[in-house]
């Protein structure tokens, strides 16, 4: 049993990754909610783009928290539906700040997770990939060991971090990312557009995603095909090449390149950012000079 555990968990990845991950995810989620804040009532409000009465019945999951529940409890106390929206949003902001500074880390992560679930279940209609990855990241933050690096908890309690729990979390997150990339690659293989290059053409030239006029790609279809095939390769073979230490650095760079392309050329900037952060936090910290072995040892 111990041999299997050793095989799964033994690695020389910087233990500070839990602290970096916690700060990166909470800061990202803060930026994300602040970006959405100008139209928060249109997205989440009672009389938003789509009224609660409609969106709740058609697009939300009954058994998960919805702001409508909170609003119905608070309404008798003179708190309107839209004020309930602000309450949940501020609670989410407060939890994320707590998580970022590492104050009551696990509790704050749990609060942020529940608040995010409530917000997303209320605005399920508007959610795309970035919400999924923010949510799963917040879920894993709940299991971050107490007293992680760069946290107030560590500063006040002076107890050592449970590195073992950090190793377990790292292993699970790595497998989860492998599942994500592998299944998305396999799903793409089922369509002809990813084999003949039309997928890249369509992704880059439809108005929803087009950031630049790339219609010249039609003149060089072989290039579109190379981009499509590269995407299939990077995603499907991700578990193999990212796990193997000698190819990890190259596959990580290729994956980051793929997400940079998605961010720049398709305008999915927040999605590209969260995917890049996840990859960097769980695979790439030891490749960055500031987080290499010696630097972290010196720091601690």
């Amino acid at each position: 049993m111990n041999a299997y555990l050793n095989l799964c968990l033994k690695n020389d990845y910087p233990n500070s990754w839990t602290g970096i991950f916690r700060i990166a995810i909470s800061t990202f989620a803060l930026v994300q909610i602040l970006v959405l804040y100008p139209n928060i009532l249109e997205i989440l409000g009672y009389n938003g783009y789509i009224q609660w009465l409609i969106s709740e019945r058609i697009f939300s999951t009954d058994t998960l928290p919805h702001i409508i529940l909170l609003a119905s409890v608070l309404k008798p106390y003179g708190i309107s539906e839209n004020q309930s929206v602000y309450l949940v949003t501020y609670f989410y902001l407060f939890s994320l700040i707590g998580l970022a500074i590492g104050y009551q880390t696990r509790l704050m992560a749990f609060f942020a997770f529940i608040a995010h679930l409530t917000l997303i279940n209320t605005a399920n209609l508007y959610a795309y990939g970035v919400e999924s990855f923010t949510h799963l990241s917040l879920f894993y933050c709940i299991f971050i060991p107490k007293n992680t690096f760069f946290s107030l908890d560590k500063y006040y309690h002076h107890t050592a971090e449970d590195f073992e729990a950090g190793k377990i979390l790292l292993f699970i997150l790595r497998i989860h990312l492998c599942i994500v990339y592998c299944t998305t690659g396999i799903a793409k293989m089922g369509g002809d557009q990813w084999w003949n290059g039309e997928a890249t053409w369509r992704a880059l030239c439809q108005p929803q995603f087009a950031q630049f006029d790339l219609t010249f790609l039609a003149q060089i279809p072989w290039f579109s095909k190379i981009l499509s095939w590269s995407t299939l390769l990077i995603e499907t073979a991700y578990p193999l090449f990212i796990w193997y230490p000698k190819t990890r650095r190259y596959w990580l760079l290729a994956t980051l390149g793929l997400h940079a392309g998605i961010g720049i050329f398709m305008g999915l900037r927040l999605f590209a950012t969260i995917m890049s952060l996840l990859n960097l936090c769980v695979w790439g910290l030891d490749l960055l000079p500031i987080f290499n072995k010696k630097a972290v040892q010196d720091f601690s």
Binding site: I120, A127, G129, E131, S132, H135, L136, F139, I179, V180, Y181, T183, T184, A187, K188, M189, G190, G191, D192, Q193, W194, E198, A199, R202, A203, Q206
Partner: peptide
């Protein structure tokens, strides 16, 4: 826990 566990973004076709 993860909202969307089916990760077939832009699949099988765009």
């Amino acid at each position: 826990t993860v909202l969307q566990a089916k990760y077939g973004f832009f699949s099988p076709n765009v």
